[in-house]
Each structure stands twice: as C-alpha cells, then as structure tokens.
C-alpha cells in the first residue's frame, strides 16, 4: 500500500553500503516502528475487522460480510448528507486556511519591531482550540445581535440566524477553521526561516523585484513545506470533528448541513453503539483520503523542489 502512495525521488543506493544502511535505517525508525507494532497496529487491524461485523458495543458482534458497505452506500441518507457536508468543508476550508497561513507567515517573516507580538496575536486563536468557552464565544459572535450581523448590517444586509440557516451554518465552522490557521502558519514561518538569505541578496543584485523573488526563490524553496501542509490539511479536513462537535453539539443541524463525516461516524459508534458500522465508515474514508493523498504525492515530483536533490 505504501509503495503506491510514496514516491521518493530516490538515488540508487550504493551497493557496498546497502546492508549497513538497512541497519542504520531501521535503527533510526525503530522508536516509531516498535511503538506502532505495540500500540497502533492492533487497534487498526481490529477496526478493519470490525468493519465487516455488526459490532454493537454493548451487544457483541457477528460477521456480516459487506452489509455495512451496502447500507452506507444505498440505504443511509444521512451518510450521504455527511459526505456532502465534509466535501464542501474540505473544498472551501482547506485552501482558505492554507492561503491565510502562507500570507500571514510571509507578512510576519520580518525583523520589524513588534513582530513577536503580531505572531502571538495571529497564533492566539489556534490555542483556544476546542474548549467549551470557544463554543460560547463563537455562538456569541454569530448571534442575532452579534458582531458578524452588526458588521454586515453596516453594509445594509439583514441579520441572519447564522447557526440555524441551512446555507450559512457551515460557514461559521469554515470561518472558525480559517481563523485558527496558526499551525500551518507556524510551519510556513519555520520553512521561510530555512531559506538562505544569500539567495535573495544575489537575486537583488540581478535586479529581481519582490514578485519575481517570491516565484523564483521563496515559493520553490518552500514547496516541501507547502506540500506537507497541503497533505496534512487535506487529511485533517476530512477528519474534522471538534469544531462541529462543540458548536452544534454534534447534532449536524440544521438539516445535516454540519454533519461532518467523522461526527456522524462518532454518533453511530457511541450514540447508537453501532461500532461495526462506524468502523466500516472509517475505512471507507481511509481509502478515499489515501487515494487523494496518493494523487498529491504523485504530482509532487512536478512541483515540489527538494534542496537535497540539487547538485547531484
């Protein structure tokens, strides 16, 4: 499975060092490998097995073959509602977060006075996370008399019941995600820090302007990090759970427009105890996300630029 996904642009290993490389390689990855085999493998394998059972947490399980998948694809209306909500969320929220994060990271990659304060301010929303206070706060902002309605009122718009309106409720969650762009931003910032300053100096000598420098130096050298953020945000986008869980109390309301996949899966698993069905849902998602990730990896050879491959 992994071979299909990952395409490292590899050099031919030198034969003489091959055996030693294996020892050293496994030595370095051994912490992860051992922890995975001890703690991660069993739950994964078990959940895969459960996908073919009607496992009910309180009742136990029977093998039912592919029934869960049949039910999911052909009988369960809410399942498709959850797919719709999730896809919409991923398509909008993931690019939004990435663009915000990159723009702000570039803005803050400077030595001006006060930049430490700005960084803290832009990162701050991300540390409030998924606490119950965030739920109250976010509801307050989107309330009838809240900040957002006040702002749109200034442009002559009528107030909206944001969290109750089937067209708009998901936007409150998308905006929450966009507002909490701190983690990709910091990763971009760390990536920008890694770009050697000399490159810009020599580009300046060649007479490049800011835009040219961005496309010729900054972006190419940042692509490994852009790639990482894209893949991780994509995965995280499909698994998004906490925000919807705290803000709509996991109800998926209104009209299932905020019923994210992971939320529905959780409800099936822990509200009606249908863990077999939830496991089947989880593995369908894993396959879909893995395929999408594989596609991103496949394209990466064309646009991701690794310094370590240069000059070889």
């Amino acid at each position: 499975m992994g071979d299909a996904i990952i395409k490292f642009p590899t050099r031919q290993p030198k034969k003489s060092r091959f055996g030693r490389n294996n020892i050293v390689g496994y030595l370095f990855i051994s912490p992860w490998l051992i922890a995975f085999i001890l703690f991660g493998l069993i739950p994964m394998v078990v959940s895969f097995g459960l996908a073919f059972t009607n496992y009910h947490i309180l009742r136990g399980w029977d093998f039912i073959g592919l029934d869960n998948f049949h039910r999911m694809f052909y009988e369960d209306r809410r399942y498709w509602n959850s797919v719709r909500a999730t896809v919409k969320y991923v398509i909008i929220a993931v690019p939004l977060r990435l663009v915000f994060a990159l723009a702000v990271a570039m803005l803050l990659n400077t030595k001006r006075r006060g930049v430490a304060f700005y960084r803290a301010a832009f990162y701050a929303p991300s540390v409030v996370g998924g606490s119950i206070a965030v739920a109250v706060m976010w509801r307050e902002i989107f309330a009838r008399e809240g900040l957002v309605n006040y702002l749109i009122g200034q442009f002559g718009q009528e107030s909206i019941w944001w969290l109750g309106h089937p067209d708009y409720a998901i936007w409150t969650l998308i905006l929450l995600a966009a507002w909490q762009f701190g983690s990709p931003m910091l990763i971009f910032l760390a990536g920008l820090k890694q770009i050697p300053g000399q490159l810009y100096e020599s580009a300046s000598i060649d007479g490049a302007n800011g835009i040219q420098k961005f496309f010729r130096i900054t972006f190419p050298l940042l692509t490994p990090v852009v790639f990482f953020n894209l893949v991780m945000q994509l995965i995280a986008g499909f698994m998004t759970f906490t925000q919807a869980f705290i803000i709509t109390n996991g109800s998926g309301r209104p009209l299932d427009t905020t019923l994210f996949y992971a939320l529905y899966l959780y409800k099936r698993g822990f509200e009606t105890y249908e863990m077999g069905y939830a496991s089947a849902m989880a593995w369908v998602m894993l396959v879909v996300v893995a395929l999408l990730t594989a596609i991103v990896f496949a394209t990466s050879a064309r646009w991701v630029y690794y310094e370590s491959q240069e000059g070889k």
Binding site: G2, I5, W32, F36, I235, L265, A290
Partner: peptide, 12 residues
C-alpha cells in the same frame, strides 16, 4: 513504512 505511517493519520 512511510506509507503505513501516513495511513495511521487517516484512520479516525
């Protein structure tokens, strides 16, 4: 193994 590691991120 790298692929397996990424897969662990995709299972809820």
């Amino acid at each position: 193994w790298f692929g397996v590691m990424l897969l662990t991120l995709m299972l809820p």
